[in-house]
């Protein structure tokens, strides 16, 4: 027996989400059908609300409900430090640490020659403008991912910001906390040695 058209439509919409295949989409749609109408409405409303209310911050390009975002508006944040990240969700990952008191800049991706994503696809011009505008920025912390794309983006940004009087730093790469030296690969070990620090 064929599935009703409404169910097929829901499955095909769910399948468009990342990491969701045919089977998972079917399981999710049957889960939603078993729930109450109120639950389905709440889910649908929250999806619509996100699309209606969420905008990108005009300063840092992070996601926010009000432009500029809470972090950019906060007078207690240190405007002399900017942490550059690839995606908006990286801001929330760093914020969950609760230690960083500076501001952010979201690139909206990373340079990836294999995917044809070049510097012009990112918010690099805005970053340059932020640094160039005789503001209080003294340090740009590059917190892109420690993979090929993230590393090449970091190298590119450091070249881009060379003409400006600003300190460009890269987050440390090396062994993860709780890791085991025995299982570390040579690249990670080399990076951890390069990034060694004096004991306090």
């Amino acid at each position: 027996m064929k599935r009703p058209p409404a169910v097929l439509e829901l499955i095909s919409e769910l399948k468009r989400l990342p990491g969701i295949g045919q089977k998972t989409a079917e399981r999710l749609s049957f889960f939603l059908m078993r729930g109450t109408l109120d639950q389905a409405r709440r889910l649908a409303n929250s999806i619509v609300k996100v699309k209606e209310k969420i905008v990108l911050c005009s300063e840092c390009h992070s996601i926010t409900e009000s432009d500029p975002c809470d972090i950019c508006r906060d007078p207690r944040r240190d405007p002399s430090q900017i942490c550059v990240v690839e995606e908006p969700h990286d801001v929330f990952v760093l914020e969950s640490m609760g230690e960083f008191q500076g501001k952010y800049h979201v690139l909206m991706g990373a340079i990836s020659p294999l995917d044809g994503i070049g510097p012009e696809s990112l918010t690099l011009e805005d970053l340059k403008t932020r640094v160039a505008s005789k503001g209080p920025i003294r340090e740009v912390i590059l917190a892109t991912n420690p993979n090929m794309e993230g590393e090449s983006t970091a190298v590119y940004i450091s070249k881009l910001l060379k003409p400006y009087e600003v300190r460009v730093t890269r987050i440390a790469r090396g062994l993860p906390m709780g890791g085991d030296l025995e299982y570390a690969d040579p690249v990670t070990l080399k990076k951890s040695l390069e990034g060694r620090m004096d004991m306090p």
Partner: peptide, 19 residues
């Protein structure tokens, strides 16, 4: 890893050529 070619990744010109 037998050879990481990490130094290629740290130079944009070399990296783009490798890619």
């Amino acid at each position: 890893i037998l050879k990481s070619f990490q130094s290629v990744r740290e130079d944009i010109g070399k990296l783009y050529t490798g890619v």
